[in-house]
Simulated scan of single mutants.
Amino acid sequence: MENLPLHYIIIVLAILAIISLSVRLIPHRHVALVERFGKYTRTLEPGLNFLIPFVEKISHKQSLRVQQLNVSIETKTADNVFVIARVSVQYFVESAEAAYNAFYQLDDPEEQITSYVYDVVRAQIPRQSLDNVFDNKDEISNVVMTQLQDAMEEFGFRIRNTLVTDIDPNEDVKRSMNRINAAQRERRAAEHEAEAERIKIVKIAEADKESKILSGQGVAGQRKAIAEGLRESIDMVVDEKNGIGAEHVVYLLTFTNYVDALESIGKDNSVIMVPQPTGQLDQMEEIRNSIISGSAVSNAAKKNGGKKSAS
């Protein structure tokens, strides 16, 4: 290089400068817009490209990848609660042809997308109460996406998705909502406890009912057995020939039960005085003696009759 003339060196440097100014490498999923003397001429695709030095220049490089824009909107609900809605917009330029409209028709795409999101969200949330806003986040997202797509499509942008990521009310409202939720949960818990107690009471009542039914059936069976036993006892003792009728047997059984009751009462060292009609015990005693004497006479007659037959 030291032996080369100066003008050769200048020519080589000029050539290298021209090559560096004319060669452009465009990354994948990007395009570049070329202007010639301030007028758009063509779009460069990804890869190696060449420009005419000093005549053409790249005015804008446009990414074709999905981009995200986060927007925060302060607005008021139908029940006068101020909230901050956070919306994430995912958008992209779908082709090299669309990049022309995206750059030359919109001065600031992000600012204009933000304006559309503000307009749609502030038209939707004030129509709904705070609770409905939380419940209808997906519906709000769909409305924002539909209207934003219609507005931005002519400018070369495609809206991939819009997400209402958060609804943030004032701290006082949050505390009030938490108290309301806690009260509702306590009310539901009390209702469940009351229902459980009601079921328990019903089950106890049903069990008591079944117990009383079974007890009544037992008492009825017991009384039936007693009645049958009394009937058999009366049939065994009644002797019409000797003047012992059924009424005498009933008096005798009544007297016997009376004496047994007095005996059982005396076992626990307690005495209960029960007034009786005058002469009732004497009457029972006379009936008892007549039954016993009648039985004795009957037995003696049977013995005498046996002796006569033997003789």
Rank of each mutant, 00 (worst) to 15 (best):
D79T: 03
V144I: 15
G266W: 05
I84S: 03
S88Q: 07
Q67G: 04
L148S: 02
N242A: 07
Q105N: 10
R179A: 14
P5F: 04
K303N: 08
Q222A: 12
T162H: 03
F255L: 12
K224V: 02
M177P: 05
S59R: 13
E286G: 08
E210I: 10
A98H: 02
D260M: 14
L51E: 05
V87I: 14
R223D: 07
K241V: 10
S290Q: 13
S141D: 08
E193Q: 13
N136F: 07
Q124R: 09
I9F: 01
V66Q: 01
Q112I: 12
P46K: 03
R175K: 12
A196C: 01
I19Y: 06
R160S: 07
H28L: 13
S309Y: 09
A78S: 12
V144T: 01
S95L: 00
K174G: 01
P5C: 05
L230V: 15
K224N: 13
Y100N: 02
E94G: 05
S270A: 06
E154H: 01
E232S: 13
R175S: 09
S298Y: 04
E191L: 14
Y40V: 04
A246N: 08
I15L: 15
T114F: 01
P275Q: 10
A182H: 08
L130K: 05
E94D: 12
I272R: 12
R42Q: 06
I84N: 11
Y118R: 14
K302M: 04
A189Q: 13
K39Q: 11
E45V: 06
V81I: 15
S115R: 13
A96K: 06
D108I: 07
E240A: 09
V31S: 04
E228N: 15
S88L: 09
I15T: 09
F92D: 04
V297R: 12
K57S: 15
E285S: 11
M145G: 01
K302T: 00
P53W: 01
I84A: 04
H60I: 03
M284V: 04
V89Q: 00
Q90L: 09
T114S: 08
S115M: 07
V202I: 14
P46C: 03
I167T: 05
S22F: 03
S233Y: 15
S72I: 05
A227R: 11
L253E: 07
R179L: 14
E206V: 06
E286W: 08
